[in-house]
Amino acid sequence: MQPEAPALLWDACEASKRAVSIASGREVGDYLGEWILQAAVERQLEIIGEALKHLRAADPETAERIPDVHAIIATRNILVHAYAQVDQEKVWEIITGDLPTLISVLEALLSEVEAQ
C-alpha cells in the first residue's frame, strides 16, 4: 500500500460512517422531506468519492480492491457537476444499502495498515 493510501481510506471510511449516522433512525420519507439531511449526506458522499478518486490516482492497486470504486467516484461527479439530476431515492439506497458494505471493506483495508 502506498504511503498516501491510509489517510485517504480513513477519510472515505469516516465520511461513510457520518452519512450512515445522519440517516440512522430515519425512514426514507424523513430523508426525502428534509433538504438539510440530503445536503449533509451529499457532502459526505462527495468526500467519499473525492478520497477514493485520489486513492485511485495514488494507489490504483488498493483502489481496485474496493468494490464499485469507479461507480462511487462517478456518484461524486454527479453530485458535484449534475446536482440538478440527483435522484434522492437512489441516494437513500446508497446510504442504507451500499455504505455499510463499503465501511466494512474500508475498515478491513485500514486494519491491514495497522497490522504492519
Rank of each mutant, 00 (worst) to 15 (best):
M1E: 12
M1H: 13
Q2I: 10
P3D: 14
A5S: 15
A5V: 11
A5H: 06
L9P: 15
W10M: 15
W10Y: 15
C13P: 02
K17H: 04
K17G: 05
R18P: 02
R18C: 01
V20A: 11
S21L: 07
S24P: 00
G25L: 03
R26T: 04
G29A: 08
D30M: 02
D30S: 04
Y31G: 01
E34G: 00
A40C: 12
V41Y: 02
R43V: 05
E46V: 12
I47P: 01
L55Q: 02
A57S: 10
A58W: 03
D59E: 07
T62V: 14
E64Q: 14
I66Y: 10
A74L: 09
T75V: 13
I78N: 06
L79R: 14
V80S: 09
H81M: 12
Q88T: 11
E89T: 14
E89S: 13
K90S: 11
V91E: 01
E93T: 12
I95Q: 02
T96S: 07
G97W: 10
P100G: 03
T101N: 07
L102T: 03
S104M: 02
S104Y: 00
L106W: 05
A108I: 04
A108H: 08
L109E: 13
L110W: 00
E114M: 04
A115I: 05
A115E: 10
A115G: 00
